[in-house]
Design a protein around this nucleic acid. Sequence first.
DNA 1: CTTGCAACATGGTCTATACCAGTATATAAT
DNA 2: ATTATATACTGGTATAGACCATGTTGCAAG
Lengths: 233, 233
Amino acid sequence: MGSPVYIQIHNDIKKAIEAGKWSVGDRIPSERELAVQFHVSRMTLRQAIQTLVEEGILERFVGSGTFVANQKVQEKMSGVTGFTDVMLAQGKQPSSKTVSYHVMSPSLSEAEKLQLKDGDQVLRMERVRYGDDVPISFEVATIPIEIVDGLSKPEVTDSLYRTLEAKKNLIPGHAKQMVSASSASERIAEYLDIKRGDAILRLRQISYLQDGRPFEYVRTQYVGERFEFVLEK
Amino acid sequence: MGSPVYIQIHNDIKKAIEAGKWSVGDRIPSERELAVQFHVSRMTLRQAIQTLVEEGILERFVGSGTFVANQKVQEKMSGVTGFTDVMLAQGKQPSSKTVSYHVMSPSLSEAEKLQLKDGDQVLRMERVRYGDDVPISFEVATIPIEIVDGLSKPEVTDSLYRTLEAKKNLIPGHAKQMVSASSASERIAEYLDIKRGDAILRLRQISYLQDGRPFEYVRTQYVGERFEFVLEK
DNA sequence: CTTGCAACATGGTCTATACCAGTATATAAT
DNA sequence: ATTATATACTGGTATAGACCATGTTGCAAG
C-alpha cells in the first residue's frame, strides 16, 4: 500500500522471475525498456533493479545487460564455522537456507576488509541458520572470487574450509572478530521471525590465511534471545 | 582520478570526520547544504552519504538530519584485562560509579559459578562504567569473600587484579565468557542513559586463578551502540 | 574468411527539480 | 507555564533528461 514504487516494481520483477518468465542466465529487458513498461523514470527503475542485485537475484554488466543470477535454496551447512558443532552440542538440529549466492563487485567496506584491488570481484552469500527449525541467525559471507574459483556451490556452502584445504591447499590462519549488539531491521526481523527492534547480537569476522591474506568476511546477526556466544581464553 | 565524484566526496567527508571536523553524535550539514559546498547535485551527494551510511560511519534520520555514528569502544579480549586498560587503550578517560558494595550470601547461580560451599559469603558490587563520561556498561561483580579479605574498598574497586597479584600473589589464569544480546530494563536504561528496550550486549565472565579456582563472576551489560568486542584468535 | 572499425545498446553517473512524510522549532492560544 | 498549531527543515522518493565508458554487433576492407 504505502510502499514506494520501486519496492512494488522489485516485487513484480521478483515474481515474474519466480513464475519462470525469465530463467537463470537470461537477459532481462534493458533499464530503459523496463522503465517504459512500468511507466516510471529510469532512475526509479534502477532502484528496483538495485535491490534485486543486492539480494543476488539479478546481475548487472555494463554494456551487456542485466541477467537473472544463480539463486535458490540449499540444505545443511558447514560445521567449520562452529555453528553446527554448537547446535549439536546443545542437542539441536542445525540447518540453513541460502537466501542469495552470487558473484558481484564488493562494497567499499568489503573491498577494504578483504584488501581487494580495483575491479576485483567477490562471491557474496546470505544465509539464515536454524536450530531445530527455529531461526538463529542471518549471515552475509563475502569471499574473493579467486579463492572459490573452480569450486562448486555445494563445496562452498557446505564445507568451504575443508574444500579449500583439500583442493587448493589454503589453510586458515587467524581471525578477527568484532562483537556488538543492535536492533533488528525490518528485513532481518522477517528472516529471523522476530519483531523489528528486537535485540540482535552482531558478529563481524575477518578470516585470514596462514600467509596473512584475508579470505572471508562474514557478518552475522544472531537473535539475542536464542543465542549465546561462549569463549574460553 | 578516474573514480566517480561521489566516491571522492565519500573520502573527503570521511577524512573530515577523522580529522575531527565533526565528532561522534554531531549533526553534519544537510544534504542540500553539502551539495552546494561540493558543487554537486543533491542526488549525487546522497550517493556519497549512502556509502558512508553503509560503512556505519554516518546515520540518517528523516526530519532530523545526518549524524556521525557512534564509533564503538573496542575491547580486545586477548588477555584478561580490566575495563580501565581497555578504555585507556582507546584514548578515552575511564571512570566508574559504584552503585552498591555489600557482603552477602550468594545466589544459587553465583554459588554454582564460583564453586562455593554452603555458608560461604561473597562480596557483590554493582558499578556503572564510563568512557569520557559517557555510560558504557553496568556490571555486577561477585567475588568470594576470602579472596578480598583484608583489602580496602578502593583496592577492590579500582584495581582488583593488580592488588590481588601484589598483595596475595593470586594470578588470574583463564576465563570463560558468555556473550549474548538482550534489551535494556527500565533500571538499567536509567543507569546507562538509554531508552528501555534498547539493545544490550551481555557478557557473563567467570575468571579463574592459575590453579583453577574461580575467583570472580561478572555480569556486564554494555550499551550496544557504544561498545564492541574485538577478538583475535 | 578474418580483421578492423564504426554505430549502437547498455549500465553507471550526474543534474536540476519537485513533492512527500516525518521532525524540530518558533509562535499563538490557553 | 503549558499546550496546540503553524512553519521551516530534513531525508526519502520520483522525474526527465544528459553524457560517459564499455560491451556488442554489423559492415566494410583486407
